[in-house]
Nucleic acid binder design. Sequence first.
DNA 1: AACACTCGCAACCGCCTCCCT
DNA 2: TAGGGAGGCGGTTGCGAGTGT
Length: 293
Amino acid sequence: MGRSLFCAKAGIKKGPWTPEEDIILVSYIQKHGPGKWGSIPANTGLMRCSKSCRLRWTNYLRPGIKHGNFTPQEEELIIHLQSLLGNKWAAIASYLPQRTDNDVKNHWNTHMKKKMKRYQAAISSHSASSGAGNVCHEFASRCYNTGSGNSNASTTHSTLPISNPSTFKYASSTENISRLLEGWRRPSQDQHIRCQSITTFANSSTNSSTPVCFMGNQIKVELPESYNPVSIEELKSLQFFEGSSRIDWEESSSGATFGGSQSVPGCSDGQKRLDDLHPPLTMLESWLADEAV
DNA sequence: AACACTCGCAACCGCCTCCCT
DNA sequence: TAGGGAGGCGGTTGCGAGTGT
């Protein structure tokens, strides 16, 4: 840290944010909504540049953000989307409502890249003759191969810690800050971003196995049938951001639809996590889960 | 107990795109 | 239509905590 040009004005503070600064930022956004980042330092007295304020909000203070361990389901989604989109972290994160692009990017770079390398090494040692091809895509494809059931899968998942103990202390303080936002409905800028990301996803999918098609003003995302990464509760937390302009999800045999009716079979109680609906994990998925410990 | 090393993640950097004038 | 500013995004850095020796 402490580099030049970014927030290069004299008197601009850099480095970790203090709880006091967080409160000031959250209070301002609570009153005025996110956006207009340039006006925040002037109006709040924060000695931070607009970019820093935006990053702090989007990556940490925004309500509904989950920190800590990624679930195997989340990892599956990241692998799959990364194979489709490449390093479009914002687009990938748009499918993980509780995760930020920074989180996804960090997780990929620190955890999953390593797994991918080890997987690649394992593959190459076992099949010297097969073309290397896109290891990432192969990795993801195997993750979605639901052939062999693994009865340990749900157990493995359920034993994963819910939150990373190392992040709990600070997270709890930001939870307090987030409570300030209770009842607040922000404008729909995030939805604009989200839809932009979806559009990016759509535009980037040009091959024959394109996961996206358009249905009038709806975007239909063709995800694997087994794929269902977001629970109703998570969606509700997302819709907290979406304000009045709701994104509805419709599950069909071929995928999820943005803009349809809100109904997830088997989730009528609104509590049942998608883990329960998810098919048994493959050996590779279990391996992923084991590696996540 | 002290030091070295590794790892995770918050934050910064710089480029790109969009929007306004 | 061009220029400038603001916001968004992906890549990268560096600090601090955790772990090993």
